[in-house]
Design a protein around this nucleic acid. Sequence first.
DNA 1: CTGAAAGCGCTAACAT
DNA 2: ATGTTAGCGCTTTCAG
Lengths: 359, 359
Amino acid sequence: MPRRRQSVTIKHVAADAGVSLQTVSRVINNEANVRPQMKERVQKSIDKLGYVPSIAARRMSGSRSYLILALNDRERTIADWRAREGSDWVDQMLLGGMLKCAEHGYRLMVELVDTHSDHVQRELRAAIAALQPDGVLLTPPHSDNRLITDLLEDAKIPFARIGSRVQDDAIALTMGDDRLAKRAVRHLVEKGHRRIGFIAGPKDYAISDWRKAGWMEAMAEAGLRTDKLCERGDFGFASGERAARKLLERRERPTAIIASNDQMAMAANAVAHDMGLRVPGDLSLVSFDNTPVVRFVQPPLTAIDQPIAETVARAVELLIAAKNGDELPPMPVVVEGELIERQSVSRPPSQLAAARANG
Amino acid sequence: MPRRRQSVTIKHVAADAGVSLQTVSRVINNEANVRPQMKERVQKSIDKLGYVPSIAARRMSGSRSYLILALNDRERTIADWRAREGSDWVDQMLLGGMLKCAEHGYRLMVELVDTHSDHVQRELRAAIAALQPDGVLLTPPHSDNRLITDLLEDAKIPFARIGSRVQDDAIALTMGDDRLAKRAVRHLVEKGHRRIGFIAGPKDYAISDWRKAGWMEAMAEAGLRTDKLCERGDFGFASGERAARKLLERRERPTAIIASNDQMAMAANAVAHDMGLRVPGDLSLVSFDNTPVVRFVQPPLTAIDQPIAETVARAVELLIAAKNGDELPPMPVVVEGELIERQSVSRPPSQLAAARANG
DNA sequence: CTGAAAGCGCTAACAT
DNA sequence: ATGTTAGCGCTTTCAG
């Protein structure tokens, strides 16, 4: 292999504009101490020659790699991809992250690491050594993993935690999970529901507890009981079935269920049908996440939308700001989602019957 | 910003092992001319120190960047992401591409470029200058874009075309579209269908014509007519509705339709329902691509699966082989998909009626 | 088989 | 406000 050289380098530009390399560098990096007239002349050469700086050379010499690393859980991500069940977390991450990166001349690289193994650190260290990213995006369930955050602090690489509330000097963003859970409860209460069940997510995801806490709080505020109304799943369909069955087989069964993610909500929907319950006539359903599939089940599910793209975009912005030494807003930053009404919520059966009797 | 330095460099390893930089470099790159004993000693130091070479430094000095660039159509990709309709092309690309890259110490970077604009070339040139990728993955509708392929040839960067059959010295891969279309026709013919309609894709995608050609060929082989049985769409839902309506409003309407992608198949399904036709009772449906959503519509669609992950993985392999100067197989490489049977195909109405009468 | 020297394209630090 | 110098971490080239 021949030594491959850049076709147009800073040298060519400098020669063309008749200035030093440094002046060109200053123009590229938009630094002060360049006369407008000089700047314009250099810019003209840059445009003429179609010069674009080499990211590798910049990384070598300077303090920046212009790379943001998005860390995802290997096992879960690959399982989702293979299952082809329409989970679009990674797509939304790319949508928010790539476009925001591009605005700042950065690139986003996706990296998969094993959460549950001892070599998280080895894997992460290798990625850092190979790429020297300017920032790292931590997605659940990595966001609060001390093995990861300690390592990044050591390496002095800014990191942003999606779905985290840890308050320290690092960046953390949430999607307002607790408030959204409350929003879901209130929506159901307004429809007349009083026994609102909840299917919680696994404990290793912090968001699981926030969502549950929001449910409990809103229930308390509405003067409603929560005992025997909560079961825990693991975000998988099968666990959702088990949880839903338990809730629906209770003597006083809930008239509505909030599930902590879409798979478990769809499972609850399936169980309800199995048991001869109509959705939403006999059971109302609100799901969390609003992944693509919820529009395609029968009935289409009312869901809490997670603004993943927006959150990731904000995270990238903060990461770059941190790298630039800019001041950051108080943490955690909240990018709140919203309730999307579809057709899985109605008034509870008793009220529907009353309405029919009166009408 | 302080000048950031690698924590462990080749120098550290060389010092630890008591050899020259060059010897370490030879070990990393698995070059000849290192005594096994020496190699082992160096490897021990590498492991001990957790050394991982900097991708930027390797790119600077050597002929490799260890980067593969996956080029996607900006407009279409972003539209898909925003629509959240469950298209998982990018995910499958990452699944196949990232994992294969990782096997070879490479990384995959996703890049979006405008196909339809004059600045394809400017955008691509910028990406090349910035990243100097060792290979480029071209996805439809870029695969046979001369503006792109000429540029890459000029830059002497190997590229792989997904969904292309152009036969030259470059890499091309198809998923056997024509044979798969024939497979779909034969499946329907076996069920007893004789009027099998076809909704073709837009002309700017080469696969559109291959799929159509396969349909025509299989129809001819079965001794069936094709006139007035084909309409063209643009892969979008609305165009699928128009096409399906045209086909189904003909005097002799088809008893089965093959649609060139899932969105158009779902549109045909919706139109059929609108017109009071049952699927599959009155109209059988086979769709192309097998994106996640086809499982969630009623009825779940029988579909031709596109092995995107596998194809991309193969493409990456070939790209790296090309970079290494290895010999390549004859082009195009075919990674064939398969027919996934679900519930949108039955025997045609006449035969169902006959069966009922006889039974 | 191993080592030393040169240099990739750029920026930080230091002149001027 | 601009230029000069040194060096980032690695591989290529050439010398032993």
